[in-house]
C-alpha cells in the first residue's frame, strides 16, 4: 500500500526516524514485526522493523548503510513509498514470573522498541554500540524501561565494551533463572547469546518478506532451512545456526 512520508528526522550516527502514513489504516502490528519498504513503481523492497505505531503513523528507525537506506534517508515529507506489512512472527510475551532482559546492538533497538513499550516496566535494557553516536533516543528509552544500561566499544558512554560483555557482568550480580532474554543486533552478538534462554530477531537478506521466495534461509538446528521472514524473524536462541548462515 502507498504511504506518505510525514517526517524524516536525522539522528546521530547516521540514524534517522522515518514516519510514514499509509493511505489505508495499517493493521495493528505486534512487537518485533517488520514492513517491506520500497519506492513506488520500484522493483525491490527491503525489510525494516517497525519502531512504533502512533495512530495511523508508522515510525521506522533506520541507519544509513548503503544506497537503499541513503535513498530512504533523503526523502522529504510528502514523498510516497510503497509498504507491505506488518510481517513476521513477533516476540512472544514474557512469562509472568520472568523479567525480560533486553539486549539491543546498534540499530537492533528498532526491533525491540514496541516490545519495550509493552513490557518495558518489567525490563532491564542493555543497549550497546560502537560509540555514543550509535545510541539514539536515550531519554525516551529511559522512560520506557525499569533500568537502562549502556555499553560502547570506545567507552564514550556507559561501560566500555560490547553488550555481550555488559550482559556477563550483569548476570554475575543477579540471581540466575529470573530472566529471559530478548535480543536483536549484529550476528556476532546473537551468536554469543545462543546458549542463553530467550528470543532473538535475526536479520537476513530478503527479497519478498512474505515467505514466497525462500531467499532468507537460515539453517535450523534440526536440519534444513527456515525462512527469516515467515518462521522468524524471531526465533528461540539456539534454534537457528549462525555459523552456517
Amino acid at each position: 500500500m502507498p504511504a506518505e512520508v510525514v517526517a524524516n528526522r536525522p539522528l546521530s550516527g547516521g540514524h534517522f526516524l522515518l514516519s510514514l502514513r499509509p493511505k489505508e489504516a495499517p493493521q495493528k502490528a505486534l512487537p518485533g514485526q517488520f514492513y517491506m519498504i520500497g519506492p513506488q513503481e520500484g522493483v525491490h523492497k527491503k525489510p525494516f522493523s517497525l519502531l512504533r505505531q502512533r495512530g495511523r503513523t508508522l515510525q521506522f528507525l533506520l541507519r544509513r548503510r548503503g544506497e537503499f537506506t541513503a535513498y530512504l534517508g533523503s526523502l522529504p515529507p510528502g514523498a510516497v513509498l510503497e509498504l507491505l506489512g506488518p510481517l513476521g512472527r513477533p516476540y512472544p510475551a514474557p512469562p509472568r514470573h520472568r523479567h525480560p532482559l533486553v539486549l539491543a546492538g546498534g540499530v537492533g533497538i528498532a526491533s525491540l522498541w514496541s516490545f519495550l513499550q509493552r513490557f518495558g516496566r518489567r525490563a532491564v535494557l542493555l543497549y550497546g554500540g560502537r560509540d555514543r553516536a550509535e545510541l539514539v533516543l536515550l531519554s525516551e528509552l529511559r522512560a520506557l524501561v525499569r533500568k537502562l544500561l549502556l555499553a560502547t566499544e570506545d567507552g564514550s558512554v556507559g561501560s566500555k565494551g560490547t553488550v555481550v560483555q555488559l550482559l556477563e557482568a550483569f548476570l554475575k550480580k543477579e540471581p540466575p533463572g529470573g530472566h529471559i532474554l530478548y535480543a536483536c543486533g549484529p550476528r556476532g552478538m546473537l551468536k554469543a547469546l545462543q546458549g542463553h534462554e530467550g528470543w532473538a530477531s535475526f536479520e537476513a537478506y530478503m527479497a519478498c518478506g512474505t515467505g514466497l521466495c525462500l531467499g532468507c534461509a537460515l539453517a535450523h538446528r534440526e536440519g534444513g532451512f527456515v525462512r527469516a521472514c515467515r518462521e522468524g524473524p524471531v526465533f528461540a536462541l539456539g534454534e537457528v545456526l549462525l555459523n552456517e548462515a
Binding site: 522493483v43 525491490h44 527491503k46 537476513a204 537478506y205 530478503m206 527479497a207 521466495c213 525462500l214 531467499g215 532468507c216 534461509a217 537460515l218 539453517a219 532451512f225 552456517e244 548462515a245
Partner: peptide, 14 residues
C-alpha cells in the same frame, strides 16, 4: 536447497 546467500537484488531484477 542451497545455503545462503540465496538472493540478490540487482538493477531491474533479482
Amino acid at each position: 536447497g542451497n545455503p545462503p546467500p540465496r538472493v540478490l537484488q540487482v538493477q531491474g531484477g533479482l
